[in-house]
Structure formats: C-alpha cells, structure tokens
Design a protein around this nucleic acid. Structure first.
Lengths: 151, 151
DNA sequence: CTGGATGCAAAGCATTTGCACCAAC
DNA sequence: GTTGGTGCAAATGCTTTGCATCCAG
C-alpha cells in the first residue's frame, strides 16, 4: 500500500492524457519530492538527489515541479528571500501550518470555523474560491527549541 | 491632520536614532509609497514617480523600502511570478488577501472571527503568535478579468 | 568637512529557455 | 522513427551592490 499511490495515479493519468512521457529523471524528481520533508527548496532537493546519485539537472527538477503544478498536484509558494517551495496538494488532507520562527518547526492545524469563514468571505465578493494559504508564525514552546533564529 | 503622521514620526525617530539622513529622494519615495494604491510593485511605483517628475532611481526605491522594512514600518510580500510588494504595517488596520489566479488582482479582507480562531489555535498549542499570512486564491468576477492567465 | 545617500551599471540569484542530443512510445 | 525529455549553458527578470559623486547635518 503505497502512501502516495493516488498521486502517482493522477500523474500517470495527466501524462497519458497529454501524450507526455514517463521518464527516469522525471520519476526520480517526483519520488524524491514526495519523500522529502515539506518546505524543501528546489536547490535543497537538487542537492539531496545529487548526493543520492541522481543525475537529474536542476532544470529538470524545475520542469517537473512545474508540470506537477500544472497538473494541480502541487502548489507553489514564494518566500521573501527569493526562492520558492512546492507543496503536495492533497484535497483529502487539507491543513494549514504553524511555523516556529525560532526553530522552523512546522505544526499542522485544521479549523472548520476558519474554513467556513473563508467560504463566506469569498461569496460576499463574488469570488470563486480555489485554494488558500494560511500560516501562523510565532514561538513554539518546545524544550529543544533554541529560542532564536539559527540564521 | 496628516493621515500618515504616525508613519513619518516613527520614520524620523528611526532615522535620528541611527544617524541616518532625511534626504529628498528618500522623502519622495515614502511620499509616493504612502499615497499609491496598495499592492503596487516596485516597478510600478518607479514608473509612477518618474511620470510625476521624480528622478529617484529604482535602487533608491528598493533601498528606501528595505529601510522601512528594517524600521518595522512595512512588510514585504512575495509573489510566485517573481516580484514583491511592500505594505504599510499599521497595527490598527490589519488585513489579509484574496488573489485572483487569472488576473492577479489583489483584494483585502479582514475577519475578526478568523483572527480570534487563530489566537485560540495558538493558545491550545502553547504557541506565542507573532504574525500570520493568510491568502485566498480563486477567480474574481470582474468585467476586465481575462478569465485566464495572460502568460 | 564627514559620513551617509544616490545614480548608474554591473553583479547576484532563482528560475526559465534555446538547442543539440537522447530516449519513450 | 517521432516527438517529447534532458543537460548544459546562456538568457531572464527582480533585486542588490560597488563605486564615484553628491549632499545633509
């Protein structure tokens, strides 16, 4: 029972429907992407793959992730320091994030009240909601949190 | 009664405390920035100022906006298409965003229920909330929205 | 006067693209 | 064999920076 079977399925369907090919490098990128910790930058993903012996170029990583984005399987998010990260877009497991600004720990939350408010906000403005991005930043209280940015 | 008196005051204090200077171009950038419509890109701001006769360079605009950011007076937001915008950080007027994925139009919203839920979520987890980022993506229904990415 | 500020052009970075070669189908 | 995919290097687009000059304090 592969954890990301649904992902691979939808990808295969997408590729087949457009006469796109299922190549080695492309598979590798998807594999590493799915198994990497969330919020990995493209450069980090590239380094990881390189260390594991993959020869996929950074261009291919970008091209593949953009493909996944076009397929509606991932979401792209930008950071102020210039780079961006891609996130798995699983409709059955939606959640938002709390991020500790000291140790970068990521916690998930799901709040029906907020979800409902979002729908209402969109309706009020004749906006057809497609997705959303919601992150709370702050200080976690974990024992092993350094209480300050590693920088 | 200048609308942004508090902003100019805090800026003056910040500059004075660090022996930084109050120059012509710097004042112009701040002035145009404060009076421009929200969510103006740096390039748009530059074009606007140029048309109005200012000779401030785009470097100066960037340097000034970064100064305001360091002073805690504005906040920077990045978009996936590469550019970023700066927003006045007024603690008495917080808002979040709706972004049209067709025409990139940005609308603001403010929802007390959501704000309250956020506080509760953080409290439940012993998280000390510092800031948050909340964006709703979808399709706007404006007459002039192309209904598709210009690309 | 002195040190910070500016304009210009060049440099940086993350990301994209052109092109010749390679490999799915 | 076709057509899409890949790696490489060059190009792009936003943002930053080095430097000589300028100006506020």
């Amino acid at each position: 029972m592969e954890k990301f079977a649904w992902f691979w399925d939808r990808l295969a369907t997408y590729l087949a429907a457009r006469n796109l090919k299922q190549t080695g490098p492309r598979r590798e990128v998807v594999e590493f992407f799915l198994n990497a910790r969330p919020h990995l930058s493209v450069e980090e993903l590239h380094a990881l793959m390189k260390k594991a012996g993959s020869r996929a170029s950074i261009s291919t990583i970008y091209r593949t992730l953009n493909l996944l984005k076009d397929a509606g399987l991932v979401e792209q998010r930008s950071f102020i320091d210039g780079h961006s990260v891609f996130e798995i877009l699983d409709p059955d497991d939606h959640h938002d994030h709390l991020i500790c600004i000291d140790c970068n720990a990521v916690t998930e939350f799901h709040n029906p009240v907020i979800e409902q408010q979002q729908v209402e906000i969109a309706q009020q403005r004749g906006f057809e909601l497609s997705s959303h991005y919601h992150v709370l930043y702050g200080h976690c209280r974990n024992k092993n949190c350094p209480q300050r940015q590693p920088k």
